[in-house]
């Protein structure tokens, strides 16, 4: 039943791996996500765009099954997000990390195996191999015993991407992966994401900056609590759409005047 089984090494396809149907999230009176209906093709790399508070993080959390929907539904393959958790790999924002924490790069990557270990189960040989494989793929094997502060920004980001790889999922959710990176580290990450796409990995990333999204992703989802547009990144980031999604920052008072959840 897994639609991904035969498609792992193929590019974007018509198969949809992720479906949102009229997904809505409200916190009390505040609507964080309004009536989102969209589908993410298997093996695509998608940037979730919008101004601050447009619902980017809420969307990611909802897909993770961590933020319950007020109404609507989300399907991953055929399953509810909470049942599809082993397929999801997550990379949090880097500003939440304490880089002085007494932990090595290998220690971070090993955390990727924790969710699939039972309470009294130790890391087995397969787990260690998966960790070694993730370190190898991201080229940080020789940094494995370093404390995480002793890395460059790009290497730090690679350590957390390796942890996501070690989780063994096939859908990668990245929360603002470019935030706080220097120019060199950004190019590194761009290169990695392009590679992942070529390998047919599905990536969904919250991205603040439209210019970066244009460079690194093939598809886009533009949010303004409702869905402004989704599809190929160049179409999504048309001047008209950007104006609609980002303009409100400068005139916050016409909220009610605008149509909700308008399609492109």
């Amino acid at each position: 039943m897994n639609p991904l089984k035969n498609l792992t090494r193929v590019g974007p396809s018509d198969q949809n791996i992720l479906l949102l149907r009229a997904a809505t999230v409200r916190y009390g009176r505040l609507t964080a996500l309004r009536d989102i209906t969209l589908s993410i093709p298997c093996g695509s790399s998608t940037a979730v765009l919008g101004r601050n508070g447009a619902g980017k993080s809420t969307l990611l959390r909802a897909v993770l099954g961590w933020q319950p929907l007020t109404s609507g539904e989300i399907r991953i393959g055929d399953a509810h997000p909470q049942h599809a958790r082993p397929r999801l790999a997550y990379v949090p924002q880097r500003h939440a990390i304490d880089w002085d924490f007494p932990i090595t790069v290998r220690g971070v990557v090993e955390q990727g195996r924790y969710p699939s270990l039972g309470l009294f189960q130790r890391m087995g040989r397969a787990d260690h191999e998966q960790v070694a494989g993730a370190l190898e793929e991201l080229g940080i094997s020789d940094l494995a015993s370093r404390q995480i502060r002793m890395l460059s920004g790009g290497q730090q980001q690679r350590a957390f991407l390796a942890r996501a790889l070690a989780q063994g999922g096939d859908i990668f959710l990245l929360d603002e992966p470019f935030a706080g990176l220097d120019l060199f580290a950004m190019e590194e990450l761009e290169h990695i994401l392009r590679n992942w796409e070529a390998q047919g990995r599905t990536v969904l990333a919250a991205v603040h900056d439209p210019a970066i999204a244009r460079r690194c992703f093939t598809r886009g989802v533009l949010l303004d609590t409702g869905l402004v547009a989704d599809g190929p990144i160049a179409d999504v980031l048309s001047p008209a759409n950007i104006d609609r999604a980002y303009r409100r920052e400068h005139c916050a008072h016409d909220e009610r005047a605008r149509p909700a959840g308008a399609q492109k």
Binding site: P92, I97, Q111, Y114, P115, L119, R163
Partner: peptide, 22 residues
């Protein structure tokens, strides 16, 4: 001893901990 991994995850990266079902 029993919850070592949960404690480590919750201390180091609570967001990841929650995102992975912790």
């Amino acid at each position: 001893a029993v919850f070592y991994r949960s404690i480590l995850l919750e201390t180091f990266d609570p967001v990841f901990h929650r995102a992975t079902g912790g």
